[in-house]
Design a binder for these strands. Structure first.
Length: 467
RNA sequence: GCCCCCAUCGUCUAGUGGCCUAGGACACCACCCUUUCAAGGUGGCGGCACGGGUUCGAAUCCCGUUGGGGGUGCCA
């Protein structure tokens, strides 16, 4: 009987969810779903310093945001490493009894001192045959056997390590608690994990873990080490230096779909002509064997490009609703819905919505803060004031529709022998305070005749004053 | 220091011995379109790290060099 494959994602709760973690979670998720297996979430909470209930919820929420839902039948967990403490100790005990592990009373200083005298580095196996037993302060070390350990890695092929380069590593601390390496392996065994897919930084630990699997009487799982994500300095993305919190990207207006799609293209290429591909397709096409071997730069520019693409291809109704959530509560939603189609295609991230349409929501009598550069440029031409007078005159009675408004201005501008690009500038600045914005005439139509004329006249006065 | 991994345009990548005068995407530049800004269209810039092999033939295979990264805890 062959069991269905079991993947696992094992973050430690540290307060924020790393984009690199999101990527490996996605890899595990895609594999588990495609193979009809299980995605096991295990919270590695052994380090008491970093263990808070709300952080676990944060992880679950972050996973849900990128489409890894705890309600999906392929999802299992969360399990907590701390709940398996007994199993960790039992495994250590077994290893000791089998002779695969031994106690050692050497302190870090003593180890270093001897290494110095020997001209070597690290622990030299000093306590291997001293027959020490458990005692406060004594650590339990694994007796690394002679030979070679070969890791069969699904993404990188065989990687071999000469065991003589691996020192007898610690299993149990002096206070009797298990270290990560042991806990991790025992948990994976307990949870019947068949595939360990994680970042490359764990590769050097893998021979130790594989030895543990074997010593504990189990066949090691399938290993897969995907390359790390790096910053512009080509260093592993770190919480300290880099912007890595998934939540932050979400808050800055990045769409989950865009983030997921972008993350998946790092180290892997979706089939087909485009890189913009829906999750379903990526899920069925993703293969660990196809993952690239070198570290990938997390490029905010490209992420942003993906995001803009996703925003533009959203159904208008969906976009309008999502965008409305970015606006102050007292801004008229209907008015926003009218302008929404014109800003949807101009938005790199959702967070820029409000500032693009704010001019439609300024209350009566609002004192517009003009962008001085825009103002100066728009009102510099000698025809500007005169043209504004003409516009004010015409707009008092013209039919109030974008088309009519445009036609009227076009009619006026011919008298000054200028193009629409120039002619619209003073009007735009007068009404919005800036030189760039959504299409002008559509904006005016939504703004309404009364308010438009008010702003036009106010600008006319201001221009006369500064003239 | 030691161990391990990696190496195609600035970036992410396609490429698995001949289809490669190396393809796409992001970025950048130019032009077109145009109601500003975007979007879109067209074109451009730009790369197989280096040196040896193997082969009729190498981005693709092997070795070395160089460069980068990761690991090296009684952290996870």
């Amino acid at each position: 009987m062959t069991e269905s494959p079991r993947f696992r994602f094992a973050p430690s709760p540290t307060g924020s969810f790393h984009v690199g973690g999101a990527r490996t979670a996605l890899h595990n998720w895609a594999m588990a779903r495609r193979l009809g297996g299980t995605f096991v979430l295990r919270i590695e909470d052994t380090d008491e310093a970093r263990n808070r209930p709300e952080w676990t919820q944060g992880i679950i929420d972050a996973l849900a945001w990128i489409g890894i839902s705890a309600d999906d039948p392929h999802f299992e967990g969360p399990h907590f490493q701390s709940e398996f403490a007994d199993a960790h100790i039992a495994a250590a005990q077994r290893l000791f009894e089998q002779g695969d592990a031994y106690y050692c009373d050497q302190t870090g200083d003593q180890i270093q001192e001897r290494a110095k005298q020997l001209g070597t580095s690290g622990y030299d196996g000093y306590s291997r045959d001293r027959g020490l037993g458990p005692a406060p302060g004594n650590v339990l070390r694994f007796r690394v056997p002679a030979g070679t350990t070969v890791i069969h890695d699904l993404v990188r092929g065989d990687v071999s390590f000469d065991n003589s380069t691996i020192e007898d590593f610690v299993l149990l601390r002096g206070n009797g608690t298990p270290v990560f390496l042991l806990a991790n392996v025992v948990d994976d065994i307990e949870m019947r994990i068949t595939h360990v897919v994680r970042a490359e930084e764990h590769l050097p630990n893998t021979p130790k873990q594989q030895m543990l699997w074997t010593a504990l009487g189990h066949t090691p799982p399938n290993w897969a080490h995907v390359p790390v994500l790096v910053n512009e300095q080509r260093k592993k993305l770190s919480k300290r230096r880099d912007k890595v919190a998934l939540e932050q990207y979400r808050d800055e207006g990045f769409l989950a779909d865009a983030m997921v799609n972008y993350l998946m293209t790092l180290g892997w290429t979706p089939p087909g002509a485009s890189e913009i591909v829906p999750w379903d397709e990526m899920e069925t096409a993703f293969r660990l064997e196809d993952v690239t071997l070198s570290p990938a730069f997390f490029d905010l520019k490209k992420l942003t490009a993906f995001n803009g693409d996703y925003i533009r291809s959203m159904p208008l109704a969906e976009f309008t609703e999502l965008a409305a959530a970015e606006l102050p509560a007292d801004w008229d939603r209907e008015r926003f819905a009218a302008i929404a189609p014109f800003i949807q295609e101009r938005l790199p991230t959702m967070s820029g919505v409000a500032e693009k349409v704010d001019f439609l929501f300024w209350p009566d009598g609002f004192d517009i803060e003009f962008d001085e550069k825009s103002w100066d440029k728009a009102f510099k031409p000698e025809w500007a004031l005169s043209l504004l007078d003409d516009v004010i005159g015409t707009y008092g009675s013209v039919e109030w529709s974008a088309d009519a408004l445009k036609a009227a201005l076009e009619d006026i501008m011919t008298r000054y022998e200028i193009k629409l690009g120039k002619a619209q500038a003073p009007v735009r600045v007068a009404v919005t305070g800036r030189s760039v914005g959504p299409p002008l005439f559509e904006s005016l139509e939504i703004l309404g005749r009364e308010e438009t004329l008010r702003r036009l006249s106010a600008a006319r006065e201001r221009a006369a004053l500064t003239d």
